[in-house]
Write a protein that binds this DNA or RNA. Sequence first.
DNA 1: TCTTGTATTGTACTAATTGTATCATTGTGT
DNA 2: ACACAATGATACAATTAGTACAATACAAGA
Lengths: 139, 139
Amino acid sequence: MTEKNLTLQLDFHSGLPIYTQIANQIQSQLVNGLLKPGDQLPTVRALALELRVNFNTVARAYRILDEARIISTQQGRGTFITEIPPPEVSEKLRSESLLELTDRFIGEALRLGFSEREVSQMVRDRLKVRKEAERQEEE
Amino acid sequence: MTEKNLTLQLDFHSGLPIYTQIANQIQSQLVNGLLKPGDQLPTVRALALELRVNFNTVARAYRILDEARIISTQQGRGTFITEIPPPEVSEKLRSESLLELTDRFIGEALRLGFSEREVSQMVRDRLKVRKEAERQEEE
DNA sequence: TCTTGTATTGTACTAATTGTATCATTGTGT
DNA sequence: ACACAATGATACAATTAGTACAATACAAGA
């Protein structure tokens, strides 16, 4: 299937934490195209076995990448390269991704029979709700 | 001819459980009118085969919809869209569906690092583009 | 018509596989 | 010796898959 063989090279004496090395190398492989959005990474246990480390160490590396929005970890399913690369990768990509996301959203809403006015109104409403929720938290 | 082709689109990397995606999309298609009261849905096994998932996953989606009185599952017969979905429920479903769709969209955009302002601006832009395209067609 | 065998349907329960959370242990630098 | 970061161990939770079962439909034969 979409299973990738990562062939990571760990240096146990480099001073860099294992989880950092794992995270760095996965990120590198994404940057130079060895990994692509949507690819499934090995499970934490499988990669840990291969690297002869504890699976929590792999999990920690995955968590770092997850927090950086580079991968998406899903309990019970697996971990995957994020479909849309993180914004900071490229500003051009960034605006294009919002455009595509928006078009998909609008397209789906219209396909479901909602009017443009309804869509626009709902977006305003939900953004407002969100802002109010934020204000709540600050208190 | 009781067979409906649902043409569901699953995203295995979206973070949403498969069963949720199935349930949501069936609900959408009901709201949208692609499915009507009395329609028979594919059997859990048939849909599972088509979607390449385990039939229990489909069964779970059906159970959720069944509990919401949206469909009626009958052992040994099949599953059907509920005959009389009260109009107010239907309208409620409708607005909830746009709400959920919108929240998902906004959530994803923000998660990608876009600001609320950017999101709102982009929605306005794309709706405008769409409207202008419509006007073109009329001429 | 009635009976009966078989296929088809959803259900229930369990297992397997995934990532998560928490705390213990180890190791290193001061 | 101590402090702290890194790693390991263990238990947990979420999702999906596997297996056996029960209800229904339906066609064939008496």
